[in-house]
Structures are given as C-alpha cells and as structure tokens.
Computed example of a mutant assay.
Amino acid sequence: MKRINTWLISTWAAIIGYFQFFPQDLNNLWQAMPDDIKASLPPYVAKGVAFALFCAMLIGRSVNTHKEKKVLEQKVEDTKDDAAA
C-alpha cells in the first residue's frame, strides 16, 4: 500500500509540476470543461484544487504513517512484557 501511495503522490506532483511549467495546457483543459462547471468556478480554482488535493494526500499519508508507528510501538511493548513474564 505504501508503494501505491508513493506512486500516486509522485504522479500527482508531476501533473502539478507540468501545469506549472506549461500553464497554456491548463488553460486548454479549462476550456475543455463543460460550461456549467466553469460558470460556477472562477479560473484560479483549478490550480488551487490541484494543490489542495496534493496537500490532502500528504497529510493523509503522514496520519496513516503515525497510526502504523503507534501500532508497532504497542506491539514492541507487548513483546517486551511477554518476554519479561
């Protein structure tokens, strides 16, 4: 699961980086969107959504890593207690 998560974050970062260096492609993507969606969102939202999703993925990954670390620490504690008894 960690490898899939890392690949997804890396791919998303590459997409964001691509649109940073080639903003005309982001504009082309914006023009290809349906008019009803474009009418409800200002143009700068596309870039903001991309960064927000990227940050959410990073935060989610760190929370998941923190939970896994706590579980491993608990297992080590349990193992030490069993060995001492």
Rank of each mutant, 00 (worst) to 15 (best):
K2R: 12
K2Y: 12
K2I: 12
R3Y: 14
R3L: 13
I4R: 09
I4Q: 03
N5T: 11
N5S: 10
T6S: 09
T6L: 12
W7L: 15
W7D: 14
W7F: 15
L8S: 10
L8Q: 06
S10M: 04
S10K: 03
T11F: 06
T11Y: 01
A13V: 04
I16C: 07
G17S: 07
Y18E: 01
F19M: 05
F19W: 09
Q20W: 00
Q20C: 01
F22I: 07
P23K: 02
P23Y: 02
D25L: 03
D25S: 08
D25T: 07
L26S: 03
L26G: 01
L26Y: 08
N27M: 13
L29Q: 06
L29I: 06
W30G: 05
W30Y: 15
W30F: 15
W30Q: 04
Q31N: 13
M33E: 09
M33D: 05
P34M: 13
D35I: 14
D36S: 03
D36R: 13
D36Y: 15
I37D: 03
I37R: 11
K38D: 02
K38Q: 13
A39R: 15
A39D: 12
L41C: 01
P43E: 12
P43K: 13
Y44M: 03
Y44T: 02
V45I: 08
A46L: 14
A46M: 13
A46E: 01
K47M: 03
G48C: 04
V49Q: 00
V49E: 06
V49D: 04
F51H: 02
F51D: 00
F54M: 03
C55S: 12
C55N: 08
A56W: 08
A56Q: 00
A56S: 03
M57V: 04
I59L: 12
G60F: 09
R61G: 12
N64H: 03
N64S: 12
T65D: 07
H66S: 09
H66K: 05
K67W: 02
K67Q: 08
E68K: 04
E68M: 00
K69P: 01
K70V: 10
K70W: 04
K70N: 04
V71A: 07
V71K: 06
L72I: 07
E73N: 07
E73D: 13
Q74K: 14
K75P: 07
K75Y: 09
E77V: 09
E77S: 12
E77C: 09
E77K: 10
E77M: 10
D78T: 13
T79N: 12
K80M: 15
D81T: 14
D82Y: 07
A85I: 05
A85F: 07
